[in-house]
């Protein structure tokens, strides 16, 4: 599904990624753990193609195709979804309009049927019921006045509606109380499947109690320094990141 090959990238002239290698197969869940400032979010933005996140060398292959020259919307249309650590507010644009616009852009690009308002609202309703998302949320402006928990749940709802192949979740648990963490984790688990891959970026292992990863990678100084199974996350919890220095 995803091959990251010796990836170096810079943001405003500063090198952040220092040779990242990562290989993810369909159906797998990978956790990337690292301390603050280690470059985890830069990795997620580079994968998603945020402008100003410049790839200096290396490559990113998605389904065997290099994506580093692609616009972020093209990558999204191919099936890459990034759940933002800090989802953005868009005043004046209702969540349901926003999501329909996103959904139809992706459908159109893939030569699938675009949905009219009625059909789309039916889809949206069934997805929000599945994920226990309050239906008022989708009538409100995009993330406008949402609580931290609402924002994160909303990201999961968008992910469910857009049905991506690769789900990258940047700190899906940050700032959430335990009930909200559980509810976000339930959502992620519901969306897991044999054909989809998941990357969870986090610095606490808390959410990994609910979303069990196949692989855990320790990310420091812009690269993966150690990989293992879920027990690696427990070591971090116990001893901190210092043991890897």
């Amino acid at each position: 599904m995803l091959e990251v090959k010796d990836l170096y990238s810079t943001v405003s002239g500063k090198t952040i990624l220092n040779g990242v290698n990562l290989s993810i197969k369909p159906g797998e869940v990978h956790a990337i753990m690292g301390p603050n400032g280690s470059g985890k979010s830069t990795l997620s933005y580079t994968l998603a193609g945020k402008p100003n996140y410049i790839v200096d060398s290396g490559d990113i292959l998605f389904e065997d195709q290099s994506i580093i020259e692609m616009l972020p919307e093209t990558r999204a249309q191919l099936g890459i979804f990034l759940s933002f650590q800090h989802p953005l507010e868009i005043a004046g644009v209702r969540m349901d309009q926003f999501m329909r616009s996103a959904y139809n852009s992706i459908q159109k690009q893939n030569n699938n049927e675009e949905l009219d308002v009625l059909k789309f609202n039916r889809l949206l309703k069934s997805k929000s019921e599945e994920l226990n998302v309050d239906s008022d949320l989708i009538q409100r402006f995009v993330n406008h006045g949402f609580s931290g928990g609402e924002r994160k749940k909303n990201e999961i709802l968008q992910m469910a509606v857009l049905d991506p192949k690769l789900m990258i979740l940047d700190e899906p648990d940050s700032g959430l109380d335990i009930d909200a963490v559980r509810s976000v984790a339930d959502g992620i688990n519901k969306l897991r499947s044999e054909s989809k891959s998941t990357v969870i970026i986090t610095h606490y292992q808390r959410i990994l109690n609910y979303v069990i990863p196949d692989y855990v990678h320790i990310f420091m100084d812009g690269k993966i320094i150690q990989s293992g199974d879920k027990t690696l996350a427990l070591q971090v919890e116990e001893k901190g990141y210092e043991i890897f220095n």
């Binding site: 998603a48 972020p72 953005l88 004046g92 309009q97 616009s101 968008q158």
Partner: peptide, 22 residues
């Protein structure tokens, strides 16, 4: 904001009209 829209598959042009119409 634009990147957020782009990441959802919405082109910059469509994102602008979405935001402005809103």
């Amino acid at each position: 904001q634009l990147f957020y829209c782009n990441q959802r598959g919405i082109s910059s042009e469509d994102a602008h009209s979405l935001i402005i119409n809103g």
